[in-house]
């Protein structure tokens, strides 16, 4: 899957991911660390794939779920995803 052009600001995507993950896992966003790996919080591959789909709907972009496994924290993913936007 090719990255899609978008102009999502990193802080917007980061905030959305924190809200989404904390909502799914029932976590307090105040104690959530964006540098921790997803699996530290129990976010598994099924939920990562679902999150990719929800993100697509929310931001109208294509998201390859494999990116969540390649960049397995909010910070890593946000950095990778938003830097791709400038490519092409």
């Amino acid at each position: 899957m090719q990255p899609t052009q978008h102009n999502i600001a990193p802080e917007v995507l980061r905030a959305w991911m924190v809200k989404y993950i904390c909502g799914v896992l029932g976590l307090d966003a105040a104690t959530f660390s964006t540098s921790d790996r997803f699996d530290v919080y129990g976010l598994d591959s099924v939920e990562a794939v679902i999150m990719a789909g929800v993100m697509e709907e929310e931001f109208q972009v294509l998201v390859d779920p494999n990116q969540f496994f390649e960049y397995p924290s909010v910070d890593e993913f946000v950095n990778a995803f938003t830097s791709q936007a400038s490519v092409g």
Binding site: D44, V46, V49, I50, A52, G53, V54, P65, N66
Partner: peptide
């Protein structure tokens, strides 16, 4: 497998108005 979950989630959101969860 990824396609099933991605597509399934789209259907679920359409029918239930919220993302699929475990």
């Amino acid at each position: 497998a990824i396609n099933v979950v991605m597509e399934g989630n789209r259907t679920y959101m359409r029918l239930r108005g919220k993302p699929l969860t475990q």
